[in-house]
């Protein structure tokens, strides 16, 4: 039994620490906000220009001037602040954000991440992902372990255009958790999803990894 999207998000939430400023990407990373431990103070940054993102609004209270980076309506908190895109990325690039949790298409054992482009297919753009992986202190990627076709996504080297080289600290998939440490130490499997065997995860991984369960 692999982890569900919510179980992956809950696992990613265990990377949060009290006092952290955090940027959450679109998709499963957005769900991490639902698993912030009670009593822990975490401030969510939205790269379109807001610190202190609140929950989604009640129906009828949506504000067209208040959206997150996924273009969803959100609300503010008493502690929130607004700023320009240049200020937002100064925070990101300048190393002021403690943790970025984002999705991935491919990750390599060297800590490379590809998540913005499939050549020859629809090209949407990198948005803020390249800035986030270049500037945020700790980068956690959450993604399915294999493609829908069954092809591995944790590779010796990414085949897709990179978002960043040597930028991933930790990878959480539906099958387990890998310490990557930006490629500075050997790739290590540190947790297996319940019911997933070592043989199964080895068979579904192209990269070579140590086992440190």
């Amino acid at each position: 039994m692999a982890w569900t999207r919510d179980e992956m998000a809950a696992r990613a939430a265990s990377e949060l620490r009290d006092g952290f400023y955090v940027n959450l990407g679109i998709g499963i990373p957005t769900l991490v906000a639902n698993y912030i431990p009670a009593g822990m103070h975490v401030t969510l940054q939205s790269e379109n220009g807001m610190l202190g993102m609140g929950p989604f609004p009640y129906e009828g209270e949506e504000d067209a001037d208040l959206i997150n980076a996924g273009k969803q309506t959100i609300t503010e908190l008493d502690s929130s602040s607004y700023f320009s895109s240049a200020d937002s990325f100064a925070m990101i690039r300048g190393g002021h954000i403690a943790l970025s949790i984002l999705g991935g298409m491919q990750v390599s054992e060297k800590g490379d991440l590809a998540n913005w482009m499939v050549p020859g297919k629809v090209v949407k753009g990198m948005g803020g992902a390249m800035d986030l992986v270049a500037g945020v202190k700790r980068v956690v990627v959450v993604m399915d372990h294999v493609e829908k076709s069954g092809a591995p996504k944790l590779l010796k080297a990414c085949t897709l255009p990179l978002t960043g080289a040597g930028v991933v600290d930790l990878l959480i998939t539906d099958l387990g958790v890998f310490e990557i440490n930006r490629g500075k130490s050997p790739l290590k499997l540190t947790a297996l999803a319940a019911g997933v065997t070592l043989d199964e995860i080895k068979a579904k991984t192209e990269a070579v990894f140590e086992v440190g369960l």
Partner: peptide, 26 residues
């Protein structure tokens, strides 16, 4: 990249013809 775009515009308006950033290296 979004931050590079924002900074390119900020720099342009501030009379700075070029700058160096980590974003996009590699």
């Amino acid at each position: 990249p979004q931050g590079t775009l924002a900074e390119r515009i900020r720099a342009g308006g501030a009379g700075i013809p070029a700058f160096f950033t980590k974003t996009g290296v590699g």
